[in-house]
Design a protein around this nucleic acid. Structure first.
Length: 522
DNA sequence: CGAGCTCCTG
DNA sequence: CAGGAGCTCG
């Protein structure tokens, strides 16, 4: 039977080796158990218990040093992912199986050889991080680490920890050591930070990936494609990737994304750094992971055109805002992240707040200058009354906006787009009615339950928090019938056949309610 | 000539 | 939804 690699102890870094494994097992990664305990809160390293159930024993076998190469079974999947990403070019780090690794694998055809190779590769990675540049990392791949080696590595880690403390203290006290020794000290500490970051990032990924926590149902789980886990979408993984300084970290054959992530600009005096992706879409996605309070804050700032406000609507606005501000309204050369500052406050991401602070200020300024998603939402609701608003009406309804030629044309463009969608829907449903064999134009009606109205309402009133005026239904019905008649008599052969319809519809505009003219919409 | 509109495209 | 081309109109 193929081992169940998704069972407990395999999908969490804290489990896959820390739980049920001894410190000796940990040493095979050259990570100091003590250091791990201090790095990963809540993770405890408990000694192997002989009283464990047979099941546990079997699972523990995967991280037992007596079974070389098997204690990082998850790296099997990681390899798949890593190889895949080589073609996509998504990652800066790549898999570079060493010659030593290849020859080793070819010499042994047994199952154990594969496991040993994987174990060796993992060991190699860790060693590459802790050893000085220039050391041939492939050496360790075929040599089983001895007990004394492991102990030496532990001592080395402790020594690095001391150096780090020393560095911290020297910085705090303003002590100026020689640049050479200090840089050497920093280099060592950086490497140490790398090894810490590995455990943190892996742990973070595995803990936050629900898919990974789903127990397998059968042996086929062995063949699960790692790409389906979307690890690259992990909030940590998708952040900026680059190696620290000039220290090129050779990471071979293992899930590399998380590793590369954490080595971005290591900061000696801070916890694991997080650099927010300065991409508007990603920002939105990250915001979506935030807590409800953040959304509540947005909600409170919403334009209240109807009777109610909904969470959904608020969120929608956030997502659209980046687009609204991204074009003509925005100052040239300004690349801001359109994330609500209040939202950022509620994200509890201190580093994120720091990174985007200036950007937020900039964005706030522009929100006051240009059109916001609230304006867009308001414009859409206005469309229920007027399809062809005059400039005067626009100025009255958007009096909180400084009207420039650019703003005016953007508002006009919005309504032009609204009309476009409106007429496209009308033509579509009119043709559909003809296809269905509708012969009497009077049977064409537009009610609130009709498909046509649902489509329109979804477009202009997505949150469905606005009571669409009855008049709009009437106008929609008239428009539908106009299209139906025109098409049925073959007017649609004329390239400008819609103009006559437009001429009719533009006369059916209503007055925009006073609330639209008095309400602040930004 | 500029404003406003439609149509097409991304 | 925005940009751009092309058109109409005052």
């Amino acid at each position: 039977m193929i081992p169940n690699v998704w069972s407990k102890g395999m999908y969490s870094s804290s489990n896959f080796c820390l739980e049920g494994c001894t410190a000796e097992h940990l040493s095979s990664f050259q990570l100091d158990p003590m250091a791990l305990n201090s790095i990963v809160p809540g993770v405890s390293i408990s000694p192997h218990k002989s009283s464990d159930s047979p099941k546990m024993l079997r699972e523990n076998a995967y991280c037992s040093s007596s079974d070389p190469g098997s204690n990082l079974m998850f790296s099997n999947r990681m390899e798949l992912k890593s190889t895949r990403d080589q073609t996509s070019g998504r990652l800066s780090t790549r898999s570079h199986p060493s010659p030593a690794s290849n020859s080793f694998c070819h010499q042994n055809q047994s199952l154990n050889s594969g496991r040993q190779a994987k174990r060796a590769r993992v060991e190699n990675i860790i060693k590459c991080m802790s050893d000085p540049p220039g050391v041939d990392c492939s050496d360790v791949m075929t040599n089983r680490r001895s007990e004394s080696d492991a102990m030496q590595e532990n001592e080395r880690m402790h020594e690095l920890e001391k150096r780090k403390l020393l560095l911290d203290q020297s910085e705090l006290s303003g002590f100026e050591s020689s640049s050479k020794s200090k840089s050497q000290l920093m280099a060592d500490v950086l490497k140490y930070e790398l090894s810490k970051a590995v455990s943190i990032s892996i742990d973070s990924i595995f803990q936050s990936s629900p898919l990974l926590q789903m127990p397998p149902k059968d042996e086929d789980s062995e063949n699960i494609d790692m790409s389906s886990l979307n690890l690259h979408k992990h909030p940590l993984v998708c952040l900026g990737l680059s190696c620290c300084g000039n220290t090129e970290v050779q990471v071979s054959d293992v899930q590399t994304e998380a590793l590369a992530l954490v080595v971005e600009k290591p900061q000696l005096h801070r916890p694991t750094p997080l650099i927010i992706p300065v991409d508007k879409n990603q920002a939105s996605e990250i915001s979506h992971n935030s807590n409800q309070n953040a959304l509540k804050c947005l909600q409170d700032g919403c334009f209240e055109a109807g009777r109610t406000k909904t969470l959904d609507g608020s969120w929608n606005m956030l997502k659209v805002r980046s687009k609204v501000n991204s074009r003509s309204v925005r100052s040239p050369g300004c690349h801001s992240v359109s994330v609500d500052p209040i939202l950022l406050e509620n994200l509890h991401l201190p580093q994120v707040k720091i990174e985007s602070n200036s950007v937020v200020k900039n964005n706030m300024y522009m929100l006051n200058e240009g059109l916001t998603t609230n304006h867009l939402k308001k414009a859409k609701l206005m469309f229920f009354y007027t399809r062809y608003p005059s400039s005067l009406v626009l100025k009255m309804c958007f009096h909180d906006v400084q009207f420039t030629r650019c703003i005016t044309s953007q508002l006009i463009k919005w309504f032009s787009n609204f009309r476009e969608f409106y007429y496209i829907q009308m033509e579509k449903f009119a043709r559909h009615a003809l296809m269905e064999g509708v012969s009497d134009v009077r049977s064409l009606t537009v009610g609130r339950e009709s498909e046509l109205f649902r489509a329109l309402n979804m477009h202009y009133n997505k949150a469905n928090d606005f009571q669409v005026p009855e008049r709009f239904l009437e106008v929609a019905e008239i428009t539908l019938r106009e299209f139906y008649i025109a098409i049925s008599v073959g007017k649609d052969h004329d390239p400008s056949w819609k103009k006559a319809i437009y001429k009719v519809i533009c006369k059916l505009d209503s007055d925009v309610p006073a609330e639209f003219k008095t309400q602040q919409s930004g």
